[in-house]
Simulated assay, not measured.
Amino acid sequence: MSSKTKKVNFQIKSWDENTDRSLILSIYNAHRKHILSEAYVEQKKDIFLMLGDKVKYSRDFLLAENEKGEIVGVAGLTNFLGNVKSTRLIYGILPEYFNSTLPQQLLKAAIALGKKLKLSTLVLDTKGSNSAPFDNALEHMGYHPIQYLLEMHLTDFIQTTPVDLPLDVSILQKSGEPDNYHLYVDLINKSFIGSFEFLPAKAESSKKIFQIRKNQFDIEVFYVKNQQQPIGVSVFFVDAQKKIGTIYSVGILPEYRHRGIGTKLLEATIQTAKNQGCKTIQLDVHVDNEKALNLYQKLGFQSNENMKSTFYKVI
């Protein structure tokens, strides 16, 4: 234990059904604000709805208390509505306890809970340089990264060399959630199958996610059509207050790639975000996806190494 490590005795216990969820949410938001800084967007109470109907808090969540009996941390196991292959470990502690024994203690307890529940796979991620205490704790426990996502920011959009869309290909824009979720998930599933942690989406789950998101963000959906046949989709969310646009997905069916269609779809998404007043646009990309990285850099995105997401498989 270093001289800077805060010496506090913590108690990790199961979720109490009388727990004030607004308190838990405030801890989660304080954690996120500390690690995300200017990219932070406050999570609303609806975030609990995104955890899915299968979550049982008394079984799947842990609370951390300090010596005064105050709740200062939370960890939970969830499949995020079934949109990833593995169960995910989500967590948050108050920033003043980052340099204490709590990160390691809470992660150990959550992993032990996952093993007790006989989970086949449990994955968690850290975000940015301020998450170093959690990375250090995981390294100390013998866990190593399995994947990285690099966050990229765009402030100055660079239009690429004009390339016309192929004949009969058009891009259509819709504000708000998708009209046809079965069409949307079909495009997403066919475009992203085989990607890291991707599990085919379901219409009902996607609808629930969008309905929660629309309470917090403005949503724009773009469809690419070839002779009226949908061949691609892009989605971005805009936080109305901070004017930070987040590109949620850009997908083109495999048989229509390498024709400049994906680039045009991304450009249309970016331009609309800029027209709506977004000062910054952000997205995540796998660090080993050289083609995507080159395209994003060509359009003006700059990588933020300090905001790299690091994934760990702990079960």
Rank of each mutant, 00 (worst) to 15 (best):
S206P: 04
G260S: 02
I231A: 02
K207V: 08
K243L: 14
P254T: 02
I244G: 01
F217D: 06
V250A: 02
R213T: 11
I270D: 02
K274Y: 04
F237P: 06
F237L: 11
I209A: 10
K214L: 07
K190T: 11
Q227K: 15
G260C: 02
F210Y: 13
A268C: 03
L265T: 00
V233Q: 03
L265W: 01
Q227T: 10
Q229V: 13
G277F: 03
Y223P: 03
I244A: 02
V233G: 07
T272V: 10
N275G: 12
A201I: 08
V235F: 06
S205G: 08
P254A: 04
T246H: 14
S205F: 12
K208V: 10
S206V: 09
A240H: 13
F236K: 03
V250N: 00
H258C: 13
F222K: 01
V221Q: 05
T263L: 12
L199T: 07
V224K: 00
Q216V: 14
K214S: 07
G277I: 08
L265V: 00
G262H: 06
Q227P: 06
T269D: 02
G277C: 02
N275C: 10
F192W: 00
P254Q: 06
I193A: 15
P200L: 02
E267S: 06
S195E: 13
P200I: 03
